[in-house]
Amino acid sequence: MTEISNLSLLTMIIFVMIPVSMSYYFSLGISKSAIWSSFRGVVQLFLIGYVLTLLFSLEDWQGVGLWVTVMLVIASLQAAKRGKGVPFAFTLSFVSLLIIEVFVLSVWIVFDIIPFKSEQVIPMSGMIIGNSMVATGLAFERMKNEFNDGRGKILAALSLGAKPAEASKMIIRKTIRASMIPNVDTLKTIGLVQLPGMMTGLILGGASPIDAIRYQIVVSISIFSCVSICAMIISLVTYRFFFNNDMQLQTLGGGD
């Protein structure tokens, strides 16, 4: 693979300067954050590069165990921010992401889809956990919004004798559906509109397009499944928090 020299990398400043100049020209007020986020992104990626090099030098089970745990904690913290007000949002995010990671990794390893090697498991798990994190956060947000906007309908259902599970059915359905739609659309146009990141990376790394596609299929289908499972777990557990023991709707407040 052709290496990008430090000097070539420095030319990326031109690309950073374009949005910064636009920010000045149109008084968008985001020039500072554009420079800061670009700088931070570069530093973070370099650091991760060194961290990954270190991890790949460890025993596979150590590298995978260590980094997957770090990813799970960070992803859970991020997802829980969206679930502010929902009791046990962090714990719930962590457990659902853990279930998904264990499930996906088991399928990959048991069916010999990928070998248990840090170089393979870590980046692929990252994609699964990252996408599941977004789905978890969105499921939290969606549940809160739906319970807020659909309050009248839930009260109507309760008043007709529905139990919380029956009254929330439509909200749970909407939440799971909403989490699946972006992935359904992505899968429909995959490769046609945009070459997915993993496939692009493998091709740039010298893999044949057919091999790259095989990996992409594994990752895309796994992500699709994980995102649906995430939304299902979050909505099936969190709806209970919106009701008290007397099957009355309650407003959630406070943090995790």
Partner: peptide, 30 residues
């Protein structure tokens, strides 16, 4: 039992708050 009580003391709200679907879906809910 609260669900039984709510069936016996039914309520119609200021807003119709109909559920998505057909009229029959709504009528048969309870």
């Amino acid at each position: 039992p609260i669900d039984e009580l709510r069936r016996k003391v039914g309520m119609v709200f200021q807003q119709a708050n109909l559920f998505d679907g057909t009229v029959e879906d709504n009528l048969k809910f309870g």
